[in-house]
Design a binder for these strands. Sequence first.
DNA 1: TACAACTATCTTGATATCAAGATAGTTTCA
DNA 2: TGAAACTATCTTGATATCAAGATAGTTGTA
Lengths: 173, 173
Amino acid sequence: MSTERQPDAVDAILNQWRRERPDLDVSPMATIGRLKRCSALMQRRLDEAFSAFGLTIWEFDVLATLRRAGAPHCLAPTALFSTLMVTSGTMTHRMQRLEASGWVERVANPDDARGKLVRLTPAGLELIDRAVEAHVENEHRILAPLSAAELNTLETSLAGLLAVLEPGKDRAD
Amino acid sequence: MSTERQPDAVDAILNQWRRERPDLDVSPMATIGRLKRCSALMQRRLDEAFSAFGLTIWEFDVLATLRRAGAPHCLAPTALFSTLMVTSGTMTHRMQRLEASGWVERVANPDDARGKLVRLTPAGLELIDRAVEAHVENEHRILAPLSAAELNTLETSLAGLLAVLEPGKDRAD
DNA sequence: TACAACTATCTTGATATCAAGATAGTTTCA
DNA sequence: TGAAACTATCTTGATATCAAGATAGTTGTA
């Protein structure tokens, strides 16, 4: 089970635990610790591209969700916060900010007067269309050091983990 | 390039983008999207174990960092917030909360009067020792559905990604 | 119709976080 | 020694988030 790679920050943490608590099998930390660390570092790299457009990660996420839904780029707040895994209160706050920026507007829902629909404005559409181009380019750049085979293995592994973590989706039983 | 797995939430997002922006090669989103989603879902699962001990994730992280440093379980705030990837202001706030809970105490730094050292109290040590046992068990449970081969592939892939993302560590040049 | 149960959204209050700057102690070097 | 540069920590003000509850509209059913 030898490895050729250089020890990383997670290896150091594992070594500390093995010294301090040799009674524990901390091997899962190798995977879960790297998952968290990769995700945190990745978000920072992605943020660099967003900030060039004056966008934060959450602003990009909301605008992108509306954009990829297709014309008329209009979704209910409930659909948005479910997709984005945040609470309704958070979504209310985000709508206020995005509306003030002029990137979304709220229009009456013809089918349900309890709520309104959130719609990309022309300015919001134009912005997110440019931002997503830069974002995708940035993602390509970030992953460029990995070979096609490495990328494929990583994606397949993460898909397997996601299937384990995603609560009860796509189950037939 | 056929796959046997069920489509997941990230596949749905990719399909939307391919319909709306067929000019973009959004393939990196398959990996990066799953990374973020796996990490978010994993944190929720981990949080379940922490909350059984009345701990939040950040409280666990700070106490665990002190614990695995070994006796006398004492680190400078700078070492803590560097390791934990947060700002100094955040760490000040965390120290106030943890000190009020009685899990850490601040002692004078004999080598540098500018700052104090943060040290686990006996109560903090006892708590984190129990909590980390439950945490590791929980991690084993979460990953149990994956085979040893799958886990090994996942860990190796994430280590490769981390080497790409980690800024300039372990470089000889 | 009328009422109960349900649902979508917003409000409130508390907390965690960050960026920028303030404060105080240490180090370097002439 | 003394002053400048540096460093460690804390403070301040703004923002994003959540949990819980409030409000208003919809649906089912007698």
